[in-house]
Design a protein around this nucleic acid. Structure first.
Length: 464
RNA sequence: GCUCCCAUCGUCUAGAGGCCUAGGACGUCGCCCUCUCACGGCGAAAACCGGGGUUCGAAUCCCCGUGGGAGCGCCA
């Protein structure tokens, strides 16, 4: 049997980080087994679904490199099919029309709660089939078995048993005729031949109902794998409040997709003590059996550590591709300064995010407004004016290479009986405006001769 | 309230009855390297939720408790 997995987000917002991980697991599982990964957009909630959300999800998936083999399928395009299945269930007596009003249901639930019972539909319309020609509005409910139990043999949870009497007759079609989630999922998973449903923990309780519907349709349910949820850094449920909740946020914070994927795959899944996983290794090593049972909290510092790892180890040209996005956000025209690959090489060991890298390399592309106050006060002193002037003269004629620049700084420092640092740091402040940058020779070289000389002049003027 | 799920360092996790004096990673704290910031190297502190069983032996199995979470919608 060929493995077929799916990712089925609802387009009501952004691509959630938890959703992204579920997608990753599903994608990995399909890829590992040479199967297919299907993308399905669950947009049956006409009220909340938007086209923008669909785009955000699609963009996020493509940024992460989670390529799907089929889809995106839209549930709103399949309403005829759902209606057909509803009719079938109705005809077979496996579903029935329910004329209860929302008010009536509310009262019923309130009474049940008062009796400390689980609020559930009591099936009062099971026997209330009105003769045809009725005009009262109705919904369609699935006739859930009243006896017995449903066993979910979950790939990560193990055997979970639900008593049918705990389940009620859920609505499969609204009064306007539109199908509901628990129903469309079932029809789609069935029609699309999904063999493994990998999804969030929060769906575990829905699973027995879905299995019952599936069986009513004469289908054998797929295998299920319910993965634990992802919590915010504070251990609380993830929300916009605490930190990045959407894939877009991570991108904007300067993450490389390689890093985010690696971070995500290790959240709730492990392969011994290994921390770093290339895509190929993920395909090879991923196994549902190694997924954890408990929820995991986000740890941004670890995510940044991984990000830094990839910034350091990926080909600089690859990092440069992503860097240009961040430079663009800062209104930098990359043609006004050094090659991005050079910038990446200079910064790959000193940036834990691309946003930071872009921010830190601004002085390569445009003049800085003013000196960092502390750095200028400490380094741009009257005493340094003479050596700095001498250095300027050297840099005006020296060969423009790291080695030659370094030698010039060293020579001038020695001539004035200064440690290298005593001259390098003032130079750094002069050419970058601040006390932090890549090695001084590299920094100067990338800034370029013309800009360097002008900035030293500016510093000399500042010293006065 | 009812049903279901979960529980190892601050965090991510290893651990499938003896290999555990509980391992790794991030972070934290020292020290080294050093032109700044980093990178890197070395080292340290830091956990089996509690109670009962089962067993010669339990982080690992069972039960109870406690604590967290999810579901109980004409949302997905």
């Amino acid at each position: 049997m060929t493995v077929r997995t799916r990712f089925a987000p609802s387009p009501t917002g952004y691509l959630h980080i938890g959703g992204a991980r579920t997608a990753l697991f599903s994608w990995l599982y399909a890829r590992k087994h040479g199967g297919s990964f299907v993308l399905r957009i669950e947009d049956t909630d006409l009220e909340r679904s938007t086209a923008e959300s669909v785009n955000v999800i699609l963009e996020g998936m493509s940024w992460l490199g989670l390529n799907y083999d089929e889809g995106p399928f839209f549930q709103t395009h399949r309403f005829d099919r759902y209606a057909e299945v509803v009719e079938q269930l109705l005809a077979e007596g496996k579903a029935y029309k329910c004329y209860c009003s929302k008010d009536e249901l509310e009262v019923m639930r309130a009474e049940q709660m008062a009796r400390k019972e689980k609020p559930r539909y009591d099936g009062r319309c099971r026997q209330r089939d009105l003769p045809s020609g009725e005009e009262a509005p109705y919904v369609i409910r699935f006739r859930n078995p009243e006896e017995g139990e449903v066993v979910v043999d979950d790939l990560v949870r193990g055997r979970v048993v639900f008593a049918n009497k705990e389940l009620d007759d859920l609505i499969i079609a609204r009064s306007d005729g539109s199908p509901t989630y628990n129903f469309t999922v079932v029809v789609d998973d069935f029609d699309m031949g999904i063999t493994h449903v990998i999804r969030g923990d929060d769906h575990l309780n829905n699973t027995p109902r879905q299995m019952n519907i599936l069986r009513a349709l004469g289908a054998e349910p797929p295998r299920y794998a319910h993965v634990p949820m992802i919590l915010g850094e504070d251990g609380q449920k993830l929300s916009k409040r605490h930190g990045a909740a959407s894939v877009t946020d991570y991108r904007d914070q300067g993450f490389l997709p390689e890093a985010l994927l690696n971070y995500l795959v290790r959240l709730g899944w492990s392969h011994g003590d290994q921390e770093i996983f290339s895509r190929e290794e993920m395909f090879q090593l991923f196994d549902i059996a190694d997924i954890n049972n408990s929820a995991s909290a986000l740890n941004m510092s670890k995510a940044f550590w991984l990000n830094q790892h990839y910034i350091k180890t990926l080909p600089p040209a690859r990092v440069a591709e992503e860097l240009s996005y961040h430079l663009g956000k800062l209104d930098v025209d990359p043609t006004t300064g050094p090659d991005l690959v050079e910038v990446v090489i200079a910064y790959q060991e000193r940036a834990k995010s691309l946003a930071e890298m872009a921010q830190g390399s601004l002085f390569f592309y445009r003049e800085f407004e003013q000196y960092d106050e502390k750095a200028a006060k400490k380094n741009l002193t009257a005493a340094i004016a003479t050596p700095l002037r001498a250095l300027r003269d050297q840099l005006a004629t020296v060969e423009w290479s790291d080695g030659a620049i370094h030698q010039a700084v060293e020579a001038v420092a020695a001539a004035h009986e200064l440690n290298l640092g005593k001259l390098a740091q003032p130079l750094r402040v002069a050419v970058t405006g601040a006390g932090v940058s890549p090695p001084i020779d590299v920094t100067v070289r990338l800034i370029g001769r013309e800009r360097t000389l002008a900035r030293i002049d500016r510093a000399l003027a500042y010293i006065g």
